[in-house]
């Protein structure tokens, strides 16, 4: 499944206001919940936090990709958030994380989950795009940038 097919303004939150990992993940889960993408927000939150305990999904250059599998979602779902203040996400380069892609996948959709994460991994290699995303002021701007408009 193309990442682009999951993109819509209602799954983007700017700004994320939390100052710690747990708060950021909770905010992103709430975004999905309010967008009607998740049946059991608590199960999703627990799944993502459990995955974080195995190793942080904070990458380099302010980018983080928390993810989890749970039967609390029926289909693959994604939430995007920007925290201009920067948050300690135990990232690979030790720098604060500002751009977050949370991926929620049902347990029986390994293929689409991998494809979405792989697309995000490719996006993360473009520093120019990540910088532009972090500076975005509105959900519309984020969607536009990711669509390559």
């Amino acid at each position: 499944m193309a990442l682009i097919e999951l993109l819509e303004e209602k799954i983007v939150k700017i700004p994320l206001v939390s100052f710690d990992k747990e708060g950021i993940i909770r905010e992103l889960v709430d975004v999905l919940s309010q967008a009607g993408k998740v049946d059991d927000p608590d199960a999703l939150f627990q799944a993502v936090m459990s995955r974080e305990k195995l190793g942080s999904t904070g990458l380099e250059d302010g980018f983080a990709v928390p993810h989890g599998k749970t039967s609390g979602v029926k289909d693959l779902a994604i939430a995007i958030g920007i925290a201009p203040q920067g948050v300690n996400f135990e990232s690979a380069d030790g720098e604060p994380s500002k751009l977050f892609f949370l991926i929620a996948a049902p347990p029986d959709k390994a293929g689409p989950h991998i494809e979405a994460l792989a697309e995000i991994a490719k996006l993360s290699r473009s520093k120019a795009l990540c910088t532009a995303l972090i500076q975005a002021k509105t959900p519309g701007e984020v969607v536009s940038l990711l669509r390559g408009d």
Binding site: L54, G55, T57, H67, A92, H113, I114, L117, K122
Partner: peptide, 22 residues
């Protein structure tokens, strides 16, 4: 799609055990 799996480990999005599980 092992290429995607490898890319996810290289990008540090996946840890090794996660790669095996997927």
């Amino acid at each position: 799609n092992t290429r995607a799996l490898s890319e996810l480990v290289q990008a540090h999005i996946f840890i090794e055990s996660e790669q095996e599980e997927y």
